[in-house]
């Protein structure tokens, strides 16, 4: 069973995102800061008539520096819309999800997001769960 995956660059790494999780890909305009919120929250942005919470994925994955750029993937978690900043988008293609395999240890932030790997022309790519990057979620799967 292969599924459509979006291949993107987040925090300098190539990742695969299940297209079921992706509502759209947009360029984020001006962002309203949210004082006192987690540092992973970049702020709020308007997406047509909807307000989305912009998530700094780089920060959410435990990196010190913040995401640059304005490209984002829109996803919905528990009724709320989030825009997760991505560095770059490659393409969309069907892949087969495989387990991570024995012995591969990811560090904490990546481990929470990692769901398995997909293979693109021999290159293994980590498939991630976007919901795991959203701060303030009680638990994910």
């Amino acid at each position: 069973m292969s599924n459509l995956y979006l291949i993107a660059h987040i925090a300098g790494r190539v990742v695969a995102i299940d297209s079921d999780q992706v509502e759209s890909v947009v360029d984020i305009g001006e962002v309203t800061a949210v004082p006192r919120a987690s540092r992973h929250v970049r702020g709020l942005a308007a997406l047509r008539s909807r307000v989305v919470t912009v998530v700094d994925t780089q920060s959410a994955l435990g990196h010190a520096e913040r995401s640059s750029g304005s490209r984002a993937v829109i996803t919905q978690v528990e009724g709320h819309h989030y825009a997760l900043l991505v560095d770059q988008l490659d393409d969309v293609a069907p892949f087969e999800l495989r387990p991570l395999g024995g012995g591969v240890a990811l560090d904490a932030a990546w481990r929470a997001a990692g769901r398995g790997i997909v293979e693109r022309d021999g290159e293994p790519i980590l498939a991630i769960d976007l919901a795991a990057l959203v701060p303030g979620q009680a638990s994910t799967h």
């Binding site: 949210v34 919120a37 709020l44 709320h80 819309h81 989030y82 303030g136 979620q137 009680a138």
Partner: peptide, 8 residues
């Protein structure tokens, strides 16, 4: 707002 914002 999303939980990340409301939790403040």
């Amino acid at each position: 707002a999303s939980p990340a914002v409301m939790s403040t």
